[in-house]
Design a protein around this nucleic acid. Sequence first.
DNA 1: TTGAACTTTCAATAAAAATTGAAAGAATAT
DNA 2: ATATTCTTTCAATTTTTATTGAAAGTTCAA
Lengths: 172, 172
Amino acid sequence: MQLDEARRRFIEGWGTLGSAWGVSRTMAQVHALLLISVGALSTEDIMEQLQISRGNVNMNVRALMDWGIVRKELRPGERREYFSAEKDIHKVATLILQERRKRELEPILRVLGEISQVETSPAATPEETVAFTQMIASIQNFAGFANRAASTLIKADENWFVSTFMKLMRPN
Amino acid sequence: MQLDEARRRFIEGWGTLGSAWGVSRTMAQVHALLLISVGALSTEDIMEQLQISRGNVNMNVRALMDWGIVRKELRPGERREYFSAEKDIHKVATLILQERRKRELEPILRVLGEISQVETSPAATPEETVAFTQMIASIQNFAGFANRAASTLIKADENWFVSTFMKLMRPN
DNA sequence: TTGAACTTTCAATAAAAATTGAAAGAATAT
DNA sequence: ATATTCTTTCAATTTTTATTGAAAGTTCAA
């Protein structure tokens, strides 16, 4: 397989993966392109390679910067902005995990906290109320577990990185 | 807060969580409704409570059964089908994790395997080719790690969490 | 075999999400 | 101050995804 085709396939596959996990296809593709590019790319480079509009590039690149996995690179004497992705996959995974924990775990925890204080009302049978509060309690509990598991993962991830780094330094 | 409002809020929150993770809002809401319902519900019950059409209920309930987190319940002497959700949140999490691993990790692994055999071509600089193959290799490596981490999580979940807390808290 | 009760399918429609592109904004050189 | 170059915004549009509802399919009792 030629490099060109391999790159196209990676960008497409990464986009598909992203959309399965609630990330817009194009945002994931911009990320993929930056991941496999040697230097930093300008807005126009990205527009051309992915065949998307300027506004689209701008929005997605900014979203990726919000996630902390892409950074702006300024070159002395040039006004144009260049973008490059964090290349250390371990860092990328950690940043995404932390960001999603903040964006999606916290809101549902807030909701669960609020609705766990449900009153026993005459309109509801005790059985319904008990079933509800028990379910909420076990979800809250599980969310706590997930939270701790995520922290553990991030730590385990560091070990993974070290061993990979060692392999790179001393192949086979 | 009244039970009714708490239930509505849970269903809404669960739907929002789902859509952040690439699950359709309605599918997550059907799941939420079944999670907090004492008995099994019929298609019509779900239609009424979520104000959605028959076809919509049918499609989403079948999708949830594909995930293995909802099951059909047949009552002797009745033709109508009833549906109930798996109430053990740890089992739910395990089933979802396994299913997503199968649906989303495996396809990207296949793509990575294919594109990792990229040829050195005259059109590409060696630098580009090396950068590409190294990035693919580290993603493959990370995917393997994620895979093992998921297995470990599932085991940790079964052995540690369930045995201590869930046996006491499990509804039904 | 027919009809009643229910489920499934799917083309049409609606809703949501992503994308465009042109205009406005910002930064800098002349 | 003005022109130049680049970035950002956002209303209009396109594309994608979800939903509906009516028709077809299924099951079973009589």
